[in-house]
């Protein structure tokens, strides 16, 4: 049973100057599922996210990734182990082309980045694999456009392609739909569903339609604690969840 969980947190707690943003979170993310974290604003979702990806250090508790304690790892080391995150606002390299963006991920994986004496043509063998990923997210025609020139929805698609280029075991998506229009949401949703095949996805998201559509398991957070956990049916009918949302004026 233990092996079925890719990420586990044990008693995860984070204090910011005396304020407990997150308290005693025991999260278990099952392999090859899409696990969503929801909750009202300020519930601690993003903090949990930043703790798991090591962008913040926990005050107490443990984080286990595939049975290994990663509580003291550095974020870059974590990415190299196969746990890759995205960001709430689009995170691309604006002055690079779409292809160069994706290649940034690929070349790290291929172990080339320290070569300061080689020409950039050493990276050309990586282009095909990158272009294939770019095609998968529907950005083929933009491959040589600088990322800054892309519309917002396309930037999010580019981010996914870049993340995928690392072939991560676990993808952590921080509000992948934030700021997107309904057309883009449909497209990115389908994309996430497709790339989640054979992968574990943990995401924070506000859009309930997306949550209902994509997630296998939902953890509802409130005031830094896990309130309820289960599938959409269970969670959406739970009176505590309804109260949490209505009680804080909805979300």
């Amino acid at each position: 049973m233990e092996n079925n969980y890719v990420i586990e947190t044990r008693g995860l707690t984070k204090e910011f100057m005396g304020f407990r943003a997150v308290e005693d979170i025991n999260l278990k993310v099952r392999r090859d599922t899409i696990h969503a974290m929801i909750g009202p604003n300020g519930a601690g979702k993003s903090t949990v996210f930043n703790l798991i990806t090591k962008f913040h250090q926990p005050t107490a508790g443990q984080i286990i990734f595939k049975g290994e304690d990663i509580t003291r790892d550095r974020p870059a080391a974590l990415a190299r182990k196969g746990l890759v995150r995205s960001f709430q606002i689009s995170a691309v390299f604006p002055e690079m082309t779409v292809l160069e963006n994706v290649r940034m991920a690929r070349m790290r994986k291929e172990g080339k980045p320290y070569q300061f004496w080689r020409s950039l043509t050493t990276l050309h063998p990586l282009n095909d694999a990158c272009l294939e990923l770019i095609d998968q997210v529907g950005l083929s025609e933009y491959a040589h456009v600088s990322a800054a020139a892309l519309p917002y929805g396309r930037k999010r698609a580019l981010e996914l392609a870049t993340t995928l280029a690392l072939e991560p075991e676990v993808m952590l998506l921080d509000e992948p739909m934030a700021g997107l229009g309904s057309e883009d949401i449909k497209r990115i949703s389908a994309l996430i569903r497709r790339v989640a095949q054979g992968r574990t996805v943990l995401m924070v998201e506000h859009n309930m339609g997306v949550i209902a559509d994509l997630s296998d398991v939902i953890s509802v957070l409130q005031r830094g604690r896990v309130l309820v956990e289960g599938d959409y049916e269970t969670v959406s009918k739970d009176p505590r969840v309804i109260e949490a949302y209505v009680g804080t004026g909805g979300d």
Binding site: V92, R108, P113, L120
Partner: peptide, 28 residues
């Protein structure tokens, strides 16, 4: 040559978005 190398490419990525470079696994 340094600028136009794979290493230079990593430098540019760090200059443009350091957090993303970290999340891709670069020890910046």
């Amino acid at each position: 040559r340094i600028v136009k190398s794979p290493f230079g490419q990593v430098l540019r990525s760090i200059g443009q978005n350091p957090d993303r470079s970290v999340s891709l696994g670069y020890s910046i």
